[in-house]
Amino acid sequence: MVAPEIKISIKDFSIYYGENAALKNLNLDIYKNEIFTIIGPANSGKSSLLQSLNRLNDLTPSYKKEGSIFIDNEDIDNADVESLRRRVSIVFALPFPLPLSIFDNIAYGPRMHGIKSKSKLAKIVEKGLREAYLWDEVKDRLDTPAMNLSGGQQQRLCIARILAVEPEIIMFDEPTSGLDPISTARVEETLRELKERYTIILVTNNVAQAARVGDRTAFLLMGELIELNDTKRLFTMAQDKRTDDYLTGKFG
């Protein structure tokens, strides 16, 4: 087997909010074109990590960090923050459509990056919606408010909106926590398709979901990495007792 190409490398990384450590001395690598899932109970530092990867955490006044994150061997602290956020996209737990039309929601990112041509934008919007499996449902009403879509549709709209800025890495922060089983299945389906072209990080507190879609899975507890392994291995023969307890539902 060929050694996988490393996309993200996290080195000795800790996060503090004021005095509280949210993440302690994390070291791990994420490979190109894999679905890397992160599981763990609430407050284990999962979302904090995601928000550090595209430096959204910079907006939190009490945020402090130690250590470094490298993407394609470049320290993200040295990167232009706007292009970093384009490359490293995030889908939030709740869908947050902007109060604009469906079309304008998806065209928002490209417009901010200077694309003005109508026909170019139309192509980008269609492509994004197709890749997010939403095109057939909305193609006749692109100019209606995005707020009118159902919850599942809104979440796929947010995925399409991200695809429109052509990211390299897509992070999902518990993307199906508010969705019904059918919508969840569609989003998971989308994840598997996206993996072909993007590197995917999925944070979930739904253990079964990690088992279904993850290539590798990391278990975080109280800000510490307890265990990291191929998803199948982690689920079948956890090395650490705490992992086993969590997976079998003894806490969490």
Partner: peptide, 25 residues
């Protein structure tokens, strides 16, 4: 707040975010 976060997370600059996602509303 979510309007600002969404806009920033799509790679818009702070001023673009204010100009396009905050001021109109």
């Amino acid at each position: 707040k979510s309007f600002r976060i969404v806009s920033l997370s799509l790679g818009a600059s702070k001023w673009q975010t204010i100009r396009h996602s905050v001021l109109p509303h």
